[in-house]
Design a protein around this nucleic acid. Structure first.
Length: 205
DNA sequence: CAATAGATCATCT
DNA sequence: GATGATCTATTGC
């Protein structure tokens, strides 16, 4: 992971070292997409970070998933085409970013839980009012959205291109994936649907 | 260190 | 009217 170890890239160099992910590649079951998104890079507003922690949320059987209650004004995007952004407000304070999985009509999404900051670190720190170590800049779902300036204004945006995008390295990094139960839920607590890059310092606590 | 309380509001019952 | 896919500050050992 020599490439990913280099932090504070210029935004342009990071764009050049990565390539677009076809929208079609997102249309897989949520657990599979959760694995695929590890090691990819999320870009927004002159800041970027590598995804190091994800959680899969399934369809109707997964009572921890917002989509298990059916289509509502908030959850409708989860039932739409894959590769789009599901963003919601949690605890009245923080925004959480999800990537829609599965084919259109089938619910499923992946919560982005942590990033390793790569580009635009000063701006990320400023948005977060953060003076601690870089690894604490975006090591949580509410922290990463704030660090990258992501809000519900980006709800429903496609992520293969445009202002909020996820790209993959042209040279794929090599890493081990660890699987654990999901965090912060009260239903389906034991399901092994949380995926992390083993040993990465920016994984949440 | 670990445990706990508080912030704060859109969504759903 | 209750709750929540969180985070920070504070208290107490």
């Amino acid at each position: 992971m020599a490439r990913a170890d280099k932090s504070n890239w210029s935004y342009a160099a990071l764009k050049a070292a990565t390539e677009r992910i076809p929208l079609h590649d997102f249309a897989v079951p949520a657990p599979e997409l959760a694995r695929k998104l590890l090691g990819t890079v999320l870009f927004h507003e002159q800041t970027a970070g590598m995804i190091v922690e994800t959680e899969a949320y399934l369809g109707t059987d997964d009572l921890a998933a917002h989509s298990s209650r059916g289509i509502t004004e908030r959850t409708k995007v989860i039932f739409g085409p894959a590769g789009h952004a599901y963003i919601y407000l949690i605890y009245g304070i923080y925004e959480c970013l999800n990537v829609v999985a599965c084919d259109e009509g089938t619910p499923g999404c992946v919560l982005i839980r942590a990033l390793e900051p790569l580009g635009g670190l000063p701006l990320m720190a400023q948005r977060r009012q953060w003076k601690g170590p870089v690894k604490g800049l975006a090591n949580g779902p509410g922290k990463l959205t704030r660090a990258l300036g992501i809000t519900r204004e980006q709800y429903g945006l496609r992520l293969d291109r445009g202002p909020l995008t996820i790209r993959q390295w042209r040279e794929k990094p090599n890493f081990e994936i660890a699987v654990t139960p999901r965090i912060g839920i009260s239903q389906c607590v034991d399901w092994p649907l949380r995926f992390v890059i083993a040993g990465n310092a920016s994984v949440s606590k």
